[in-house]
């Protein structure tokens, strides 16, 4: 991940998706993948190149939970908060971790190491509780397992 805005990279992403019937979401996904978030500058460039208003781009970015408008930590831990994970005690485990890190949902540790975000179901509901760390899935995460995972993300 690279947090600096590089117009040429954004341009390249847009060019690569221009053949699609509606490229906006794929372009935003690719920008976030590249930079970790979608900056004002990136939104402006996307609006220009796709010939839509900035308000439209902003409206889409703010609608979807996936898109971030602020940089995330070096690691992103998504913890499932949906019902099946709750039935296996996910909420208490998450609360303990957030308290120890001094974070709210969506927050990033002061050293910029870890962002903890909620997610509503990863399709691992029969191996609950579950989580995703930097795109890797983890199931049957008890309190100790979760703590281990958070420490591993160094």
């Amino acid at each position: 991940m690279n947090n600096d805005f590089k117009p040429e990279l954004v341009e390249a992403i847009i060019d690569a998706n221009l053949g699609l019937e509606r490229p906006l979401l794929p372009v935003l996904h690719a920008i976030q993948e590249e930079f970790g978030f979608i900056s004002e500058d990136a939104m402006r460039l996307v609006a220009n190149r796709l010939n839509i208003t900035r308000a439209e781009v902003y409206g889409v970015v703010s609608f979807y939970h996936d898109y971030r408008t602020k940089p995330a930590g070096r690691h992103v831990l998504k913890l499932c908060r949906a019902e099946a994970c709750q039935s296996m005690g996910s909420e208490a485990n998450a609360a303990a971790l957030l308290t120890r890190l001094g974070l709210d949902w969506g927050g990033t540790t002061e050293d910029g190491r870890l962002t903890v975000e909620p997610v509503y179901c990863l399709g691992l509901c029969a191996c609950a509780p579950s989580a995703m760390l930097d795109g890797e899935l983890h199931g049957r995460l008890d309190a100790a397992g979760l703590e281990f995972l958070a420490q591993e993300a160094a």
């Binding site: 409206g59 609608f63 997610v119």
Partner: peptide, 21 residues
């Protein structure tokens, strides 16, 4: 892009069209 409501068929179509779902 992480929106439960996009499972609703018409919201899904709007999302496919590059709009808010």
């Amino acid at each position: 892009a992480g929106a439960y409501v996009c499972g609703e068929e018409t919201a899904l179509l709007d999302s496919l069209e590059g709009k808010r779902g």
